[in-house]
Design a protein around this nucleic acid. Structure first.
Lengths: 184, 184
DNA sequence: ACAGAATTCGAGGGCACCCTCGACTTAGTC
DNA sequence: GACTAAGTCGAGGGTGCCCTCGAATTCTGT
């Protein structure tokens, strides 16, 4: 059932873009919990207009993050192409957390149990798929602890999210120590 | 200048105790951010009375945590008495996070930058002192990475606080992996 | 038993955020 | 240029938390 919604009026389209831009900035700077009123203000648009375009916070996430999450696929593919299983695994994590460090919104998305925008969920699943394969490859090559699992990565991601949030200068070192601990 | 405050009236003393007990419970269960109104409710006391006894949240912390923080000294002393430098270091951390896992209030206190109750601050300093010595001993014995520092422990504590909060079943494994990475 | 001091109570004001709705404005069409 | 559907605005109601203050109550010494 495709609801053929007629095109937005010009001013409405403009406001929609302003809102999206403002939301993208604020999510990246401050994480997913920015007050919607701040977004409206930064977009120079009233709060009512914001709600007209994006009735819920999830609607913002659904509009903003699919694009961002594409970066996950990029680093995933890059890692899959790396012939060295350990290097692939380690680089993937480094790239992943570098993305999170640049965008606190992404950081929250990946650390929190999950926003419900379907596009976001599926991107996360693809990410898990990549990680799963990287883990298996590295274990098979004998360079990663045999008991390492996706669960460890989920835990690590929550921990990293915290480190990134309140000691942004430390996350890389923290990760490298943890990785050392993961090595076979 | 010692202000010789006269003893509390009997009912007041009783309420003070009820408040303290309620606060201790709620901080432990839910962390430092419980609404003060919830504390009053659990103590079966009005919000006004709560503010009479404890004008600020810090006053609660100052009244509750010194006692709890004594546990830090206990595990610190235990670790100092351990002749095996690595075992002392690792056990200290395990004991520390076990305490945090049992008390989300303590977890918050140690992870957050700050509470200003002087008793709390000094207990944290003592804890840092212990950790500093344990680190030095372990490095000198050649069992710990030479570049390990107090800063790493601060970062680790923030990360662990997060893990403890939202995957309480995982913290021990997470710690053991990290410790493996810290080994020389 | 009473007075007076100490304590308690909770309504209420403040703030930040959420979200809605009807009056106003504007883009786009004829 | 005027009509109308589409869009915008922001005041205001709801919630949850903070904290205060004056009226009502309860202890306690005499």
């Amino acid at each position: 059932m495709v609801t053929a919604s007629r095109p937005l009026r010009a001013d409405a389209a403009r406001n929609r873009e302003k809102l999206l831009a403002a939301a993208a900035e604020l999510f990246a700077e401050r994480g997913l919990d920015v007050p919607l009123e701040h977004i409206a203000r930064r977009a120079s648009v009233s709060i009512g207009t914001l709600y007209k375009h994006f009735p819920t916070r999830e609607d913002f996430l659904g509009a903003i993050f699919p694009e961002r999450l594409a970066a996950l696929d990029v680093i995933g593919d890059k890692a899959m192409a790396d012939p060295d299983p350990w290097h692939a695994f380690a680089c993937y994590l480094d790239d992943l957390y570098a993305l999170q460090a640049e965008d606190l919104g992404l950081n929250d998305i990946l650390a929190r149990d999950l926003p419900n925008a379907p596009e976001v969920v599926s991107a996360c699943h693809r990410g898990q798929g990549h990680i799963g394969i990287l883990i298996t490859r590295a274990i098979d090559a004998g360079v990663l602890r045999a008991d390492c699992s996706i669960t460890d990565m989920a835990t690590l991601t929550r921990a990293m999210a915290q480190v990134i949030r309140d000691s942004p200068g430390e996350w890389r070192r923290f990760l490298s120590i943890y990785l050392e601990g993961l090595r076979a």
